[in-house]
Design a protein around this nucleic acid. Structure first.
Lengths: 152, 152
DNA sequence: TGACTCATGTCAGTATTCTGACATAGATTC
DNA sequence: GAATCTATGTCAGAATACTGACATGAGTCA
């Protein structure tokens, strides 16, 4: 079907491989979250709030790797459906601290179990050493990409 | 601003780190492709065609990690603007082999240089060993995620 | 040959995310 | 204190990608 012998260096590109891995992860997460009626961004938002209660819209956006406008529309839907609460007025500045409701916490529980199974599956074929290597290498890539190439 | 001391295990999740790395890579690529008026999917399509001339719509979609419907609208735009050509009738079956035009090839050249700089930047802080480790580990993750957990 | 399955190309509508823009609150600088 | 800068929340429109659906061509099997 493909692999027709041409020296395809997409197969030797770390960027392409990273995109492939990310795509596979996203697909696997969507697959297990779909039965729960939850998208990946939806889940990310709830998980962030469970681990750091009181995060603002902008902080949630950065944590979920979307724009604050995108997170805003998601939060409005989550608030309307009773998964999170935000004060009507900001305690300080314009920042509205968001918190999970009991309903949000319950909804998250099932999702966490589902997502953890994906994480476990992803780590399945890796040794302890490979896992810590993976962390170190991914962090190195992130750092290099963020701070431009004038770091040295 | 954050990091308020709560034991945040998102920081210990390989899935989260993978998403973070992928997001950083995408942002870096968009940054260098924007001046050329080219999106990441747009570039991926042209690069795939340069390395494997004659790929079909569906094959390009799989290679760029989008649906074949999404790739179809992109190909129609690229064809309209003279970057690629497809025969009016399928030589065999329904498959329409796509090829770059000279204009498409020219457009790709600049983009390739730009994207290569991102790839180089990403590999900057890594040793040879770490690079080959990165390949092996990412492939392992992809394999585990794809084939379900009943591989063993 | 005929029924069935599968992959493909494509149209349409929907969903999700982004960019642009604005007003406002806190921090910084003079 | 006033000006400036930065960050935030939010609205609106545009871009992008997806799901659903359909017809068609090729391979498989009886």
């Amino acid at each position: 079907m493909s692999q027709n012998g041409v020296g395809v260096d997409l197969e030797t590109s770390l960027g392409y491989l990273l995109k492939e891995a990310s795509s596979a992860l996203r697909a696997a997460m969507e697959e297990v979250l779909r039965p729960l009626g939850m998208s990946v961004t939806h889940y990310s938002c709830l998980e962030l709030l469970a681990q750091r209660p009181g995060l603002s819209n902008s902080e949630l956006a950065r944590g979920a790797f979307v724009t604050r406008q995108t997170m805003n529309v998601l939060l409005q839907a989550l608030e309307r459906d009773g998964y999170v609460t935000r004060p009507a007025e900001a305690p300080v500045g314009k920042v509205l601290p968001t918190r999970l409701t009991p309903r949000g916490r319950r909804s998250l529980e099932k999702a966490t179990v589902a997502v953890r199974s994906v994480e476990v599956r992803m780590l399945a074929g890796m040794t302890e050493t490979e896992q810590s290597d993976a962390f170190r290498i991914l962090r190195s890539m992130i750092h290099s990409l963020r701070d431009g190439n004038d770091g040295a």
